[in-house]
Computed example of a mutant assay.
Amino acid sequence: MSNFVLTLELKTEKWQEDILDKRFNIGRQIYNACLGELYKRYNTMTQRKEYNKVLEMPKDKDRNKEFNKLNKKYGLTEYSLHKYVKPMQHYFKKNIDSFTAQKIATRAFRAFEKYMFLESKKVYFKKYGELNSLEGKSNGTGIKFQDDKLVWNKLEISAIIKKSDEYAQMALENKIKYCRILRRFIRGKYKYYIQLVLEGMPPIKINKKTGEIKNSIGSGRVGIDIGTQTIAISSEADTKLLELAPDVNYIEKEKRLLLRKLDRQRRANNPNKYNEDGTIKRENKDSVFVN
């Protein structure tokens, strides 16, 4: 069955944001612990003679079966990682429920699988502030969306649903499979969202004035010009100039000003290294540059 996603902004207060930030950091610690345990188990396995014997086998189904046996033996399975994370979750039970902890473990395992199957050279541990999403297994336990609110371990936060937002209201008529909490850094501050994974097809948007379907698939030629900062779109019906990544802070001007300041300081501190026209005296090698 098909699914679609609805993202709603959360109406958070400062104390609620502090709790969410704490839980994101705990989730990061659990993720890194799972990753570290997987590295430990994998290194133990690869040092065994039985692993090298399987490695030398021809690449076929029998070889894959032997690798699966080794993975089970040394705990390199998703289920074994769920067992590993259980006592850790119990320690953090006031903030992280068991189902969310299992999804974090699954996330770490999926990332490590790519390393095991040589799809990536390395799996990186997450630094402070790098884990910005947490999700549950179902809408019945752990992270839940009930009565237009995020409900999670005694924390309740209302979602912003405008009365004029017919799309969101129609989408919420579908069954919610599970929820995901997002944290995004926008214009110098964090904003928090709940992302609902819903069963079925997304609602069709209707233009109230014309009664036509919005964003319907049409026909005709469309020209697209992608630049470094903008994208231009031109068709017979419309022409648009859109900014790429509008939420990213543009710091090029600030960088230029800082570089100019550094250059002025360097020239002032090293007058013997420059000619009158401002060019560098390449023959002057008596002293080093001083910033």
Results as ranks from 00 to 15, higher is better:
residue 4 F to A: 09
residue 6 L to M: 09
residue 6 L to N: 06
residue 6 L to E: 11
residue 7 T to C: 05
residue 7 T to H: 03
residue 8 L to G: 08
residue 9 E to C: 02
residue 9 E to I: 05
residue 13 E to F: 05
residue 13 E to Y: 11
residue 15 W to D: 12
residue 19 I to Y: 09
residue 26 I to F: 09
residue 28 R to D: 09
residue 28 R to M: 06
residue 29 Q to K: 14
residue 30 I to T: 03
residue 30 I to E: 00
residue 31 Y to S: 00
residue 31 Y to F: 15
residue 34 C to F: 01
residue 35 L to M: 10
residue 40 K to T: 07
residue 41 R to H: 01
residue 42 Y to M: 05
residue 43 N to C: 00
residue 44 T to H: 03
residue 47 Q to K: 15
residue 49 K to R: 10
residue 50 E to G: 03
residue 54 V to A: 11
residue 57 M to K: 13
residue 57 M to P: 14
residue 61 K to Y: 13
residue 63 R to P: 06
residue 66 E to C: 10
residue 67 F to T: 05
residue 73 K to M: 12
residue 74 Y to V: 11
residue 78 E to Y: 00
residue 80 S to I: 01
residue 84 Y to D: 08
residue 86 K to G: 01
residue 88 M to T: 12
residue 89 Q to T: 04
residue 91 Y to P: 01
residue 96 I to W: 01
residue 98 S to G: 00
residue 99 F to G: 00
residue 103 K to D: 12
residue 104 I to V: 15
residue 104 I to D: 04
residue 105 A to C: 05
residue 105 A to I: 03
residue 106 T to S: 15
residue 107 R to D: 11
residue 110 R to I: 07
residue 111 A to V: 04
residue 113 E to G: 00
residue 114 K to F: 07
residue 116 M to H: 02
residue 116 M to V: 12
residue 117 F to A: 06
residue 119 E to V: 00
residue 120 S to C: 14
residue 120 S to I: 13
residue 125 F to R: 15
residue 126 K to A: 06
residue 130 E to Q: 12
residue 134 L to N: 12
residue 134 L to P: 07
residue 138 S to Q: 08
residue 142 G to D: 13
residue 143 I to F: 01
residue 144 K to L: 03
residue 145 F to S: 01
residue 146 Q to I: 15
residue 147 D to F: 03
residue 148 D to F: 04
residue 148 D to Y: 10
residue 152 W to E: 01
residue 155 L to D: 07
residue 158 S to W: 01
residue 159 A to L: 11
residue 160 I to N: 15
residue 162 K to H: 14
residue 162 K to F: 10
residue 162 K to D: 13
residue 170 M to H: 12
residue 171 A to G: 04
residue 173 E to N: 12
residue 176 I to R: 08
residue 181 I to G: 04
residue 182 L to E: 09
residue 186 I to V: 14
residue 186 I to M: 07
residue 188 G to V: 04
residue 195 Q to R: 07
residue 197 V to P: 03
residue 197 V to W: 09
residue 198 L to N: 01
residue 200 G to I: 00
residue 204 I to M: 05
residue 204 I to K: 11
residue 216 S to E: 09
residue 217 I to L: 06
residue 217 I to Y: 03
residue 221 R to T: 14
residue 228 T to H: 12
residue 230 T to D: 15
residue 231 I to L: 04
residue 232 A to C: 07
residue 234 S to R: 08
residue 237 A to W: 02
residue 246 P to R: 05
residue 247 D to A: 13
residue 247 D to W: 13
residue 248 V to C: 04
residue 249 N to Q: 11
residue 255 K to D: 08
residue 256 R to Y: 13
residue 257 L to G: 02
residue 257 L to M: 07
residue 259 L to W: 04
residue 260 R to T: 11
residue 260 R to F: 11
residue 260 R to K: 14
residue 263 D to H: 11
residue 263 D to E: 14
residue 264 R to Q: 10
residue 264 R to M: 04
residue 268 A to V: 05
residue 269 N to L: 15
residue 270 N to M: 09
residue 272 N to M: 10
residue 272 N to G: 08
residue 276 E to P: 00
residue 276 E to C: 06
residue 277 D to W: 03
residue 279 T to W: 09
residue 280 I to C: 05
residue 281 K to G: 06
residue 282 R to Q: 11
residue 283 E to A: 10
residue 283 E to C: 02
residue 283 E to G: 04
residue 286 D to F: 08
residue 287 S to R: 14
residue 288 V to N: 13
residue 288 V to A: 13
residue 289 F to T: 04
residue 290 V to L: 13
residue 291 N to D: 11
residue 291 N to E: 13
